[in-house]
Design a protein around this nucleic acid. Structure first.
Length: 297
DNA sequence: GCGAGGG
DNA sequence: CCCTCGCAACGCAAG
DNA sequence: CTTGCG
């Protein structure tokens, strides 16, 4: 089956192949989803190295992670070659709708992107907090996110929130790229510790699973070079095909909003009705310098 | 999903 | 010819 | 040093 997206044409093999057996979601439906959210998604993935999470035989089978662009990918897929410890890797970069849809046609269910852009790979333009609950109780995620938003606001930092599609949520601060990853991570760690201290019975920064004791993990370790995070609007390889959904704060706080409320099947309707919750992402991000780190502890 | 390599 | 295999790797804490 | 963890 031939697909044409703008000026680019490519083959979609086995469009009727079922990728989500419990839901009957086919590869063609995945492609159609990404074609529809792609224009919105582009704002958040443009100029960022991509990590692909692919399931050619469906989510019930083993999938695999792929960073390097295979040689058979068409030449019109944008690329960025980045340094890693023992050499370099060439990532795909989704700068056009066709690139996103091509990845979907490759059974890439989840697109992950870096927190920095190709012109300044060592300078993140966002700081991310991953709120990962110990169980499936989303109310602890909700209250932590709201507290974190308030904490950031007290530092003069604006925040955006998305469900991840699995169990938790991401709280994201746009940055002006004046700081490197180490400085951003250390700032995030301080905020995370302040967040935990507000409710230490239900929150922790403890990486060790056995020391976590069912508490919500406030994870800042994604704020590092080469570390990808699930892209806004990306689908997850989970029954029901939940998607990572950017939300307005009121929508996020709404009782009944859960980590898997938004799916490949209902996200587009929601977007048609409510628009892009992250449309107000600032042209220039916030600066960490000047924010009162020492005063906080 | 696809190419590379082995039996 | 068919079958199998590879397809990622940062920063930290703990042992 | 290696391993677990996300």
């Amino acid at each position: 089956m031939k697909l044409r997206i703008g000026p680019y044409a490519f083959e979609l093999s086995r469009p009727a192949k079922v990728l989500f057996p419990d839901d009957g979601i086919t590869k063609a439906e995945l492609v159609d989803y990404y074609r529809r959210v792609g224009p919105l998604m582009l704002n958040h993935v443009r100029d960022r190295p991509v990590m692909m999470e692919r399931f050619p035989d469906g989510i019930e089978a083993e999938g695999f992670i792929q960073k390097d662009v295979p040689r058979y990918f068409p030449e019109w897929i944008p690329r960025a070659t980045v340094n890693k410890q023992g050499g370099e890797v060439t990532h795909a970069v989704c700068n056009n709708l066709a690139a996103i849809v091509y990845l979907a046609a490759q059974a890439c269910i989840t697109i992950h992107v870096w927190l920095s852009r190709v012109d300044r790979l060592d300078r993140p333009d966002q700081m991310i907090f991953d709120l990962d609950p110990g169980d499936d109780d989303f109310s602890v995620v909700r209250s932590a996110a709201v507290d974190l938003r308030q904490l950031c606001a007290s530092q003069g930092l604006g925040t955006f929130v998305k469900t991840t599609g699995s169990r938790g949520a991401h709280v994201v601060v746009p940055l002006d790229r004046s700081a490197g990853f180490d400085e951003v991570r250390s700032f995030a760690r301080t905020l995370a510790q302040a967040l935990v201290s507000r409710d230490p019975g239900r929150r922790t920064t403890e990486a060790r699973k056995d020391k976590r004791n069912g508490r919500l993990l406030v994870d800042v370790m994604r704020n590092a070079y080469g570390q990808p995070a699930v892209a806004p609007y990306a689908a997850r390889p989970i029954r029901g095909a939940p998607v990572a959904m950017p939300l307005s704060w009121p929508a996020f706080e709404r009782d009944g909003t859960g980590p898997r409320s938004f799916t490949l099947r209902n996200a587009c309707d929601y977007l048609d009705e409510h628009g892009d919750a992250w449309a107000d992402w600032p042209r220039r991000g916030y600066s960490l310098s000047g924010a009162g780190i020492p005063a906080m502890a």
